[in-house]
Amino acid sequence: MEWLELVLVGMLLPVFPASVVFNAVIRWTPTGWGKAAAMILLPEVGVALLSSISSARVPLVHSRGWIVLVAFSALLYAFRAISVREISIWARLMATSGLGLVWIFEATHRGRDVMAVAVLAWSVPAALLLVLAGLLTERSGGAYLGLQGGLARVVPRISSLATLSALALVATPLFPSFFALLHVIGVLRLFWLWPLLLVLLVWGWSLGGFLQQLLFGSYSGERFPDLGTLATSSGAVVLSLLVVSAVVWSGAWIGI
């Protein structure tokens, strides 16, 4: 029974191989807004479900093998994201990579209350990207990058918000994911730093590839409208709130 619960939590707070279900749910959820809601809700439900399970009933989660699985999962999804050109696929693969790391708090008995907040560090920027991908799809028929050249000149507002959201997703300083990652590394023994640093490197690579496709080149497709002022401001407010919350509560994020 515990196993079943654990697999269920693994589908919601994604860790490979159960993470395939998480990705499938987001993939098949219609519209960008629906995907974004799923991206924020599923991990939170996963954390809540995990909180209802006694630690003693899932000893596997507290073993070294579980940390290996979590690190492998994070690395696998980050590595897969380096060859992705579609915004919503990139966002969910990168989010899967980051969200999996939250399991480390449970694995090291560092408090489940941290987990509910830490998942937001990856789920909110990913949700924002999913919304932007949806808006882009509505306007241009798809959110594929690199086919028609850079979008920065055609839709500068969408491009700017997508760029900042992508930065927020890959542990860029001042965003919550940076401090959350510091916290994750802080609770582990130094030996485990190596795989996590590798994850950070692959995130950087993946981000570089994503931005290169998003921003650079001369656009050769049909023109389509950019975001309005209100929508752009709303996105900017969400991102600013992320930065402010990270800076103000950095102690809580870092957990030192």
Binding site: G150, G186, L193, L197, G208, F216
Partner: peptide, 29 residues
């Protein structure tokens, strides 16, 4: 942003810098 080459070389730089960030993380921890 019109020049793909500029993006390509900026990406190289960013990746090398990221590679160099990792030892500093190690040293800090």
């Amino acid at each position: 942003t019109d020049r793909r080459q500029a993006g390509r070389y900026a990406f190289w730089t960013q990746l090398t810098y990221r590679l160099g960030d990792l030892p500093l993380w190690l040293a800090a921890f």
